[in-house]
Simulated assay, not measured.
Amino acid sequence: MDAYYNCLGCMNRQVRVLTMDGQQHEGTIVKVDRNNVYLKKESNGRVQTSAFYPGYGYGNQILTLSLFTLLAIALI
């Protein structure tokens, strides 16, 4: 539950997310629900994605991360 509230507090802000498997992701949190955080990733001018979240327009691709896999989140 702490991850949920931490992500809500970082909505629409640039963050760095560390997951339990050691992966790091940087981007802007665009949505949070009780199970997932949706991160708009940009790297070297390119958007990278693992999922598309409808409602943000075609071409805006979003990385979906399970809140249960988050280890840390920091504003950047």
Results as ranks from 00 to 15, higher is better:
residue 1 M to Y: 06
residue 1 M to T: 11
residue 2 D to K: 12
residue 3 A to V: 04
residue 3 A to H: 11
residue 4 Y to R: 09
residue 4 Y to N: 06
residue 5 Y to W: 13
residue 6 N to I: 10
residue 6 N to Q: 15
residue 7 C to Q: 08
residue 8 L to P: 04
residue 8 L to C: 13
residue 8 L to F: 01
residue 9 G to E: 11
residue 9 G to F: 01
residue 10 C to Y: 03
residue 10 C to M: 15
residue 10 C to R: 02
residue 11 M to S: 08
residue 11 M to N: 08
residue 11 M to V: 03
residue 11 M to H: 00
residue 11 M to E: 11
residue 12 N to V: 02
residue 12 N to L: 07
residue 12 N to H: 05
residue 12 N to M: 04
residue 12 N to Y: 03
residue 13 R to G: 13
residue 13 R to D: 06
residue 13 R to P: 12
residue 14 Q to F: 03
residue 14 Q to V: 07
residue 15 V to G: 09
residue 16 R to T: 15
residue 17 V to C: 02
residue 17 V to H: 00
residue 17 V to N: 01
residue 19 T to K: 04
residue 20 M to I: 12
residue 20 M to G: 08
residue 20 M to V: 13
residue 21 D to T: 14
residue 21 D to W: 04
residue 23 Q to V: 05
residue 24 Q to Y: 08
residue 24 Q to D: 14
residue 25 H to L: 13
residue 25 H to F: 11
residue 25 H to G: 01
residue 27 G to T: 00
residue 28 T to V: 15
residue 28 T to S: 08
residue 29 I to V: 13
residue 29 I to D: 12
residue 29 I to R: 01
residue 29 I to P: 14
residue 29 I to W: 01
residue 30 V to M: 13
residue 31 K to L: 14
residue 31 K to I: 06
residue 31 K to D: 07
residue 32 V to M: 05
residue 32 V to L: 00
residue 32 V to H: 08
residue 32 V to T: 04
residue 33 D to N: 15
residue 33 D to F: 09
residue 34 R to Y: 11
residue 34 R to V: 13
residue 34 R to L: 04
residue 35 N to S: 12
residue 36 N to R: 11
residue 37 V to S: 07
residue 37 V to F: 07
residue 37 V to P: 12
residue 40 K to I: 01
residue 40 K to R: 15
residue 40 K to A: 11
residue 40 K to L: 10
residue 41 K to D: 00
residue 42 E to W: 10
residue 42 E to A: 09
residue 42 E to T: 15
residue 42 E to K: 15
residue 44 N to I: 01
residue 44 N to T: 02
residue 44 N to S: 07
residue 44 N to G: 05
residue 45 G to E: 07
residue 46 R to S: 08
residue 46 R to Q: 09
residue 47 V to T: 11
residue 47 V to E: 09
residue 48 Q to Y: 15
residue 48 Q to F: 14
residue 48 Q to S: 15
residue 49 T to L: 12
residue 50 S to Q: 09
residue 50 S to L: 06
residue 51 A to S: 14
residue 51 A to I: 00
residue 52 F to E: 06
residue 52 F to P: 00
residue 52 F to W: 05
residue 53 Y to F: 13
residue 54 P to S: 08
residue 55 G to Q: 02
residue 55 G to M: 04
residue 56 Y to F: 15
residue 56 Y to L: 13
residue 56 Y to V: 00
residue 56 Y to T: 05
residue 56 Y to R: 02
residue 57 G to I: 07
residue 57 G to N: 04
residue 58 Y to S: 12
residue 58 Y to E: 07
residue 59 G to R: 07
residue 59 G to T: 02
residue 59 G to M: 06
residue 59 G to D: 04
residue 59 G to I: 00
residue 59 G to W: 05
residue 60 N to Q: 14
residue 60 N to W: 09
residue 60 N to D: 08
residue 60 N to V: 10
residue 61 Q to E: 05
residue 61 Q to Y: 12
residue 62 I to R: 07
residue 62 I to K: 06
residue 63 L to W: 14
residue 63 L to N: 14
residue 63 L to K: 11
residue 63 L to D: 14
residue 64 T to S: 15
residue 64 T to L: 12
residue 64 T to H: 10
residue 64 T to D: 02
residue 65 L to V: 05
residue 65 L to D: 03
residue 66 S to T: 00
residue 67 L to F: 03
residue 68 F to E: 03
residue 68 F to T: 02
residue 69 T to S: 11
residue 72 A to V: 03
residue 73 I to K: 01
residue 74 A to N: 09
residue 74 A to K: 06
residue 74 A to D: 07
residue 75 L to F: 02
residue 75 L to A: 10
residue 76 I to P: 03
residue 76 I to N: 04
residue 76 I to K: 08
residue 76 I to V: 08
